[in-house]
Design a protein around this nucleic acid. Structure first.
Lengths: 116, 116
DNA sequence: TCGATGCATCGACACTCGTCAATGTTTCCG
DNA sequence: CGGAAACATTGACGAGTGTCGATGCATCGA
């Protein structure tokens, strides 16, 4: 991943740096997609709930209860987070358990690394 | 600023953690505004150009030339970045020189810190 | 003072996004 | 099989966003 703050040498992560300059259009678009997934308060709260879950998994009904949004709205946000690679769902019986992809989150964080 | 990934103890930064759970609505909204500013490829490229600028400053016409967007469009994006506290403009004569606020960028990065 | 330059603002447009009610799909249980 | 529960999908709506041309404002040079 590209980094926003430039480090001349790419790291082991996949994303371009926000600071690599000039960030080319493709890298910028990829990074922007990642940050777009983070650019909503409901989705940020979903991530925070997942992060704090003792067993690392939370089912959809739990989000609906805690976030005060309709079930379709929660499902919509989970789909966006899933498409961004930030969460993953696992169906077990009637429930779907979502977990946090910490590596993907770390990639986005790395893109904001102060320029080296 | 709150952190998305929870660290029980707040750090010295202003932002709530994305992972503090559950992130309350106000903190989530604040963080989301920050990431919204990063959720556009043109703005990410603006930041990368600023980060790579030898003297830390770039005038508007430089962005227009490098990014292939109209001058009003660039001005629009600079206004959004400025409102988010990520850049600051300084008028000197006919030119306005923009610089990167690395502290603000570090705050957003800290909000993605893996949960501790 | 006057024209030119650099940048911001305005107005308009197409497009995307967040939201919810209604409906569809999958799974479990009796 | 049939009903209920959990979740996804669809359709629709209002609100917000990115873009550009036209225009306004400030500054500099002649």
């Amino acid at each position: 991943m590209a980094k926003l703050v430039a480090t001349i040498e790419p790291r082991e992560v996949c994303c371009p740096s926000v600071l690599a300059s000039p960030l080319d259009s493709t890298q910028a678009a990829d990074l922007a997609r990642g940050f777009t997934a983070l650019a909503d308060p409901v989705r940020l709260r979903v991530l925070s709930i997942l992060n704090a879950a003792p067993d690392g998994e939370v089912c959809v009904c739990e989000f609906v209860g805690q976030l005060g949004k309709s079930q379709p709205t929660i499902s919509h946000h989970l789909k966006i987070l899933s498409a961004a690679g930030l969460v993953a769902g696992d169906r077990r019986g009637k429930w779907v358990w979502y977990s946090l992809n910490r590596e993907r989150l770390a990639d986005l964080q790395a893109a904001l690394q102060p320029s080296g």
